[in-house]
Each structure stands twice: as C-alpha cells, then as structure tokens.
Design a protein around this nucleic acid. Structure first.
Lengths: 214, 214
DNA sequence: CGATAATTTGACCGATTGGTAAAACATTAC
DNA sequence: GTAATGTTTTACCAATCGGTCAAATTATCG
C-alpha cells in the first residue's frame, strides 16, 4: 500500500530527491515570473517535464510547492545581511554588503523575483517570516549601524531606511531587469550594468554616509 | 440596434464615463495586487459592483481593461521625471524629484504596484513603452545630469544608475510596503515612515553626489 | 406619450483550473 | 524469484476561467 506522500516516516528515495529538486526548480521559474495566483500546476509540471498527477504525488497542493520553495530560498536570501558584521569596519562592511546583494541580483534573479512577487501581492504566505525572523535580524543590524553613527564612523542616519535603500537599489537590478535593459538599450547588452551599478552605488553610499576612506 | 461597444462614433454617455471610471478603479485594485494573470474578470466586476457581462459591455476583454488602465496611469506616473528641469539647480531639482516620487509612492501605491507587477512579470504589455517613450525621456534627463557633472555642480556619476536608484528607493515604499511595515513594526504605525525616508534619502543623495548646499 | 437606443441581466459555452481515484508500472528487499 | 513498496499514468471531477447571446430593462429624445 502506498503511504501518504507527505507523511513519509522513513528516509527519502533517490528518486524522491531528484524529482522534488526538479519540481522546485521548475516552480521557481513559474512562480517568480507569474506570482502565486498567476501560476498553474500544469505550467510547473510542464517545466519540470512530468505529468500533473505525478507532480502532485510529491507535493499535494500548489500551496505546498510554494511553501517548500519559500522555505528553501528564504534562508539563503538573507545570508548577506546575516554576514553583516559589527566588528568589521563600516567601509568594508557596507561595500561588501552592496557587492554581495548585487551579485545575488545577478546570479539569482528568480529568487529575488519570487520574493518581490510575494511581497507585492501582500505577502499572504510569508507575513510571519517578515514580522518575526526578518524583523529581528534587521533590528540587530540596525543597532550595529546606529553604533557606527554614534561613534562618528559614519554619518548620522536612520539605519532602517539605509537598509531599505540598499535592498531597493540592489534588488532593482533583478526585479526590474526588463526595464533596466530597455532603458539602457541593447548597446549595453552584456552584464556590464552590474559593474556600473556597483561602482555607482559604492560611491553613493561611501560619500552619502561620509565614510572616510583613510 | 446596439452599436458595438468599442466602436462608438458619437460622444460618450454620462453612464459610460461613470461606469468605465468605476471599472478602471476596481481593475487597479485587482491588477495591482494580483498581476495580470492572477486577476480575474469576476474579481474586477465584483470590486466594481456590477455583473461580469455588464463589465464586458464596456471593455470587451480582460486585456482591454488592462491596456486602458496602463495607458491612463503611465502618463501621470512619469510626470515627476518629465518635470525634472535642466535649468533648475541640481540641489533643488534632485531634492524635489525625490520628494515627488515619495509622495507618489505614498498617495498612489496601487499605480506603483501595477507597474511593478507588470515589469516583474516581464512587461509583456508595455515593453514598447519602455523601449520607446520611457527610454527617450530617460536619455534626455541623463544628458542633463551629465552636464551637471561636467560643470562640477554634482559629483561625476553614471546618470542612468542614479535615476534607477531614485526609482528603486522611492517606489520601494509603495511596492514593498508590507515588508517595510513588518520590519518597522507597528509602533511606527502612522505615515511617518515617508518623512523619515525623505529625510534619509535627501541626505544620502545630497552628500552622495557632493552637492554643495551653499 | 411612444420610439429608439443604451444598459443590464441570466443562462450558457468550451477551455482551464486545482485536485482525485484507481489501476498500471517500476523498484527494492528478501 | 516474489512480495511489498514506490512511482507513474489514464481517466476523471467539480469549480472557475474568459467570454457570448438574446432577452429584459432602463434611459433618452422628440
């Protein structure tokens, strides 16, 4: 007799891992470019190269796929902020935070768009994550920044809005990629825009926060 | 006999204007929070307080509603950038551009999210607008900024990425509102976040672009 | 008023949606 | 091998999708 799919008590099969991996990758494609409501199980099944009932053997509902995907991606996504270090010096920390966030926008645009879609549409599935773990993490880092400002290492500023602005400017290159490319035109076809963006943003924040480069 | 809906040769009825207005407002609600694919005609009809066939009497397809909405909103949305003036002085121009964009994020978040959804999902309906009129407008304003940099009025920087960064940081407060609110917590419940953001961003850009406040 | 045009409704259509049931098929363990 | 388990397929379901149609209703105009 077949045991209910999600309630497997034993370890997972090789096939299970392979298929779940393929499904989640396909789901990332689909959800990140159509949002939750706009995506269909059929699209995901197609993208994963399997039949819909077969897909539903691994994830019982559309919500289940989405939840699994969010869970898997959220941790990685917050890595750069977690790495933000109080002991480091402001210049290096902020510079490398910007750089890492831009690299993620370049290398993992689907993940960025997945979250953007989710939040744009009211974050119905991750509100708790935002108000809990995310808020806690940001509160922590905001305190670090505030300390830097208190000791005159950087200009006085609202640390929350500083973080928001770095999120916004870096993720912009993933989420609004189509617009960025349309405006820059095809002459700048390569990935050079990410280096240009890095140069611009690093300068903006170094001078904007009055960080001495001594 | 009833004349085909879209092909009205004569002026529009009072009822027509009222209803089309109501439909577009309802559609703005729905499209801006679910994207095009994720929205249904029934939702829009419900929100507009009329039956689906009645709605389809005014707009023949879902695409038609969306197109009408985009057309109406796009012009207004680019107003602030259009107002960006070469003759003005950099400090005042950039300050007021930031302020106006933030005001729009506060007062017209649905419009912001409509575009964000559209671009996130690959801009299938407005790609031409982006590559045409928008690019042209940005090219123009980029030239203004470049001139300011050449004459030493502001720091040398990539004008395109400067514009992107202002778009990103200001629209963030509309598009990622849920996240912003979750992170700031409910103690800062009011609209004060927009003033804090304005203060932060004006400082960031004034210092970041080394604009003398003399 | 009556006539004509504009608006609204309810009933309906075929396609697609998320999801199920059961049987066929494949794999593994003994 | 064979039995038990794990996987995949086929056929299907009710609900919802975008959209149509004709008839009923309402507004407008002389």
């Amino acid at each position: 007799m077949t045991i209910p799919r999600a309630a497997k008590t034993q370890r997972r099969t090789r096939i299970q891992e392979e298929k779940e991996e393929r499904i989640l990758d396909a789901a990332l494609d689909v959800f990140s470019s159509s949002g939750f409501r706009g995506s269909t199980i059929d699209q995901i099944a197609d993208a994963a190269g399997m039949s819909k009932p077969n897909l539903l053997y691994y994830f019982r509902t559309k919500e289940a796929i989405h939840r699994a995907l969010i869970d898997r991606v959220l941790f990685t996504w917050l890595e750069p902020l977690r790495a933000f270090n109080a002991e480091g010096n402001p210049e290096a920390e902020i510079r490398s935070y910007i750089r890492r966030k831009l690299e993620m926008a370049r290398d993992f645009p689907r993940e960025s768009r997945l979250f953007a879609n989710e939040i744009l549409q009211g974050a119905p599935h991750i509100e708790d994550e935002l108000k809990g773990p995310l808020k806690k993490l940001v509160d922590e880092k905001a305190e670090v920044i505030r300390a830097w400002a208190r000791t005159g290492k950087i200009a006085r500023c609202d640390p929350y809005h500083l973080i928001f602005s770095i999120w916004a400017t870096t993720q912009h290159y993933a989420d609004f990629d189509v617009q960025v490319r349309a405006v820059l035109g095809q002459e700048s076809a390569g990935e050079g825009r990410f280096e240009d963006a890095a140069r611009f943003l690093e300068q903006l924040y170094m001078d904007g926060l009055r960080i001495n480069k001594s």
